[in-house]
Design a protein around this nucleic acid. Sequence first.
DNA 1: CTTATTGCAAAAGGTTTGCAACCGA
DNA 2: TCGGTTGCAAACCTTTTGCAATAAG
Lengths: 131, 131
Amino acid sequence: MLKHSKQRDAIEQFLATRYDHPTAETVYMNLREEYPKLSLATVYRNLSLLAELGNIQKIPTGNGPDRFDGRPEPHNHFLCDECGSMIDLQMNSIDHVDEIAAQTFDGVIKGHSILFYGICLECLKKEKEQK
Amino acid sequence: MLKHSKQRDAIEQFLATRYDHPTAETVYMNLREEYPKLSLATVYRNLSLLAELGNIQKIPTGNGPDRFDGRPEPHNHFLCDECGSMIDLQMNSIDHVDEIAAQTFDGVIKGHSILFYGICLECLKKEKEQK
DNA sequence: CTTATTGCAAAAGGTTTGCAACCGA
DNA sequence: TCGGTTGCAAACCTTTTGCAATAAG
């Protein structure tokens, strides 16, 4: 059970080419060119499925739509308050937070997600230019 | 500008008595008893305002409604995959993650939010009992 | 008296779902 | 053929918004 689907392949492949953590809508818009009949529902369904399978990551932002990351390996993210851009932060040394958490908690910690927020380089530059 | 409001006080007060990170809906349901004419919109408006003022914390979960925490001091949270309960995790030693992140990132990091996920103690017990 | 706040209802935004048609194994 | 997958539209859930009425300072 779980048949092949061109749409699913295309979605996974598209995410593999993007480093900006697109939304479902963005995936949809881009793939429409190649698959004019593609439906947004199909995009959502496959993004959820791919995330469950562990092939991609779904990253909730707290405001605005979820973002999707073609790289399934654990890593952290930075979200710019101002322009909404999301950036990968590779921080190997940070996995120990699960251990620290485990010391104060008796349940099972499967993992964590850290979302850093602030102002990205581009927005900083723009602010300086305006002065 | 910023007048006093009984509703806002009640919402902040209610949160101060709860350690289970209620949703806006839960706040609403509970305060209806004392304020029968209270509107859900008022609850949302005040929760947002209180969070902006830094009096409470708003915690997005990624699935389901946002949760609210009457304790504004920085701390982390654990969300149970199975029953949806949310627990505070006090981990003073964890603030250095911002520093670590700053080493790999040129923008401004204002803060972070860590959401741990897994299975809580209660759900673990239930699972064991079923076997 | 002025204006922040409220309640109500309607709208918005993002995501999910029902269903018949379609496609892959 | 069987059943997973699609497209479409409608439904859903959470949150926000417009507006006239109310209440705080």
